[in-house]
Amino acid sequence: MNKLLELRNVTLKYQTPNDEITAIENLSFNCNDGDFVSLIGPSGCGKTTVLSLLAGLITPSSGSILFDGERLSKSNDNLGYMLQKDHLFPWRTIEKNVFLPLEIKKINTQENREYAISLLEKYGLKEFKKRYPDQLSGGMRQRAALIRTLSSKPKLLLLDEPFSALDYQTRLSVCDDVYRIIKAERKTAVLVTHDISEAISMSDKIIVLTNRPAQVKSILYPKLVGDSPLSRRESKEFGTWFEKVWKELH
């Protein structure tokens, strides 16, 4: 399969008035087209920093990041970033929120708007497109946030603990929703999480990171029966995999 993303010996140091901190050291991994990859690691190990690197928000101190075989540039139109909270703008309707990346990237054409609307319709937010975010439930808002991420047709989605702000029930169903949408749209995704079950139930590939400075500790390929995170959670092997990841983390 085609390598969409490739990190080669990426190191990131950043300066504070008191110290120089090495957040990431010699980090290397690949991500194939269509993969769902999870980054999991102890808290504070720099998981989010890895995403910021992938999003082009910061540049590595050394090493290289290749996207589709080319060096990652600052304004990469093929990326969509999704954060913990939905961060929908309360003064914009759902529809206008979904158009936001189109406006920013100056590709706000009739065709692209229609595509965004079609996503809203396909994923059950048709009646809500003229509503404001505070009129929607937490789960629907997160779904709208995902559609906003998808509206500019990115190849790679970066998900930074996108479910952690939701309560448990909503979390399971939104997790299912997001997985279904990402797979249906054939997107590649990198998920950062500290939730082992979430990582196992969603990913083709789990990258376990060490304590800071973050390095790859091990890579696991969970193979579970089931076509959705919920059904995977119910499969027999789930417990075994949970233990495996748990041991890697501790």
Partner: peptide, 14 residues
């Protein structure tokens, strides 16, 4: 202004 909202816009290339 929410720092994360700024981050979100930056990730869109704003």
């Amino acid at each position: 202004t929410d720092k994360n909202k700024i981050l979100l816009l930056k990730s869109m290339g704003a």
